[in-house]
Design a protein around this nucleic acid. Structure first.
Lengths: 240, 240
DNA sequence: ACACTCGAAATGGTCAAACCATTGACGTAG
DNA sequence: CTACGTCAATGGTTTGACCATTTCGAGTGT
């Protein structure tokens, strides 16, 4: 005899099933917690635990109140859910930075290849602006990192793939804190050189995208990512 | 004044923080639910909701009983968490199969490239066995799909990257049900041709890996993935 | 001294019953 | 017709209880 199924797992499984078979779609509202409880023959607490699990997966959202605003709805909060999940697992990975870097290379090579073929003038303009800001004076570390992230995300968006974009954001965000710590460990001169290298490489990637050369863009972005991480070897430690 | 923070979110955030800063690591046991409740000044129900969220993220696991066996522990259940999350979001994606295919291409090109450089004789032997079974007589659709998945996962494992492997599994698993439906929509002859094509391409990929030609392996696996999906165009619909 | 048994204690799992705060809907007074 | 107020429905939260499972140790019998 297998384990007795948990009440909250029954509820979670039922709702997941209804999402998978399409009978629940984005925007739909679930029955009220009290109704779900009687429907499944469990307590309201069990229903709430199931909803918390689904919420962590980024597929539902709850809000109080009567009428249309209140209740639990099906949503798509994939970016948030993936980011949180990946961030925790990167923290637990314990010295597997290599794997994360390899994933970033895979994702961003793909984005660069596709973006080179379909990037719009507007997207190029956005990137150009970001590159200019990164070259600006008086840009502190955190701002620079944000601009850097935005540039990479802009490439992913130009590839017109929300899934890869979300993963790119999640990977990047998972490493934000440790990267910041590693950069702060550099001397002022080392950091200036590092930043200069990043800007130069970014501009090379941009030129390749503008020229529509996907293979060149992919190669450049791979080199860029590997260069950035090998310049910050302290990343393996990364406490607090 | 922003929204009043939810009790369960406070607890979740605290525990996540302790994972991120390294003070909680895999194998560690959390305080008992009743203790956490008093510690954070919330009810036990709120603590349980937080734990359910963390459980959905694949970082904790609970079991009953006194002593060392009972309690809530930090674990790494990344494969399960990623698979569930991605499966739900693929179901909600609504005609964005293209994005999933593109992600698969990115992941598996990376795996093929790396695997070609470092694959072990044992891993090659595993792959060879899978290929032989796929060529066998009397293999039903579901079994074939399982073998197919195993072959692709074997390549990811050979690339020695657990993160990419988990994502490969998650992507594949997210499409398992819809793929099965699509295949069952093919005529007997069409399906036989389809299967033959997959086997042939698998064998080509294997040969490239065995020869240590990463670029060839990557190109072949990309062609393989794209060919498989364009042979199953029904995938966009895919209701229950 | 040892082995066995049984119960106490600690754990998560579950339920029931309340109360609160927020929000929209509806009816009513002006 | 508008404005206001009441009411009902929602999720958020707490309290308190009980159950099933599991360990650990005290007690007991040999």
């Amino acid at each position: 005899m297998p384990n007795k199924p948990k009440a909250f797992d029954i509820v979670r499984a039922h709702i997941e099933e209804r999402i998978l078979d399409g009978s629940l779609d984005i925007g739909d509202t679930l029955a009220a917690e009290r109704e779900l409880a009687t429907e499944f023959g469990v307590s309201r607490g069990a229903v709430r635990e199931a909803i918390r699990a689904l919420e962590a997966q980024g597929v539902v959202e709850s809000s109080v109140g009567a009428g249309a605003t209140g209740g639990t709805r099906i949503i798509r909060a994939r970016t948030r859910a993936l980011t949180r999940l990946l961030r925790l697992h990167v923290a637990l990975a314990d010295g597997r930075l290599r794997e994360v870097v390899e994933l970033r290379v895979a994702l961003e090579r793909s984005s660069a290849t596709l973006a080179a073929a379909s990037v719009t003038p507007e997207a190029l303009e956005t990137m150009r602006t970001l590159l200019a800001k990164m070259r600006g004076e008086g840009v502190d570390i955190e701002t620079f990192n944000r601009l850097d992230t935005d540039f990479h995300v802009a490439i992913a968006r130009a590839a017109d793939n929300t899934l890869v974009t979300d993963l790119t954001i999640a990977v990047r965000e998972s490493l934000r804190a440790p990267i910041l710590v590693a950069e702060q460990g550099l001397s002022s001169g080392e950091y200036a050189d590092f930043r200069g290298m990043l800007c130069e490489q970014h501009e090379g990637i941009f030129a390749a995208l503008e020229a529509g050369d996907g293979e060149d863009a992919a190669q450049r972005i791979e080199t860029h990512i590997r260069a950035a991480y090998s310049a910050l070897p302290v990343l393996t430690a990364a406490p607090e």
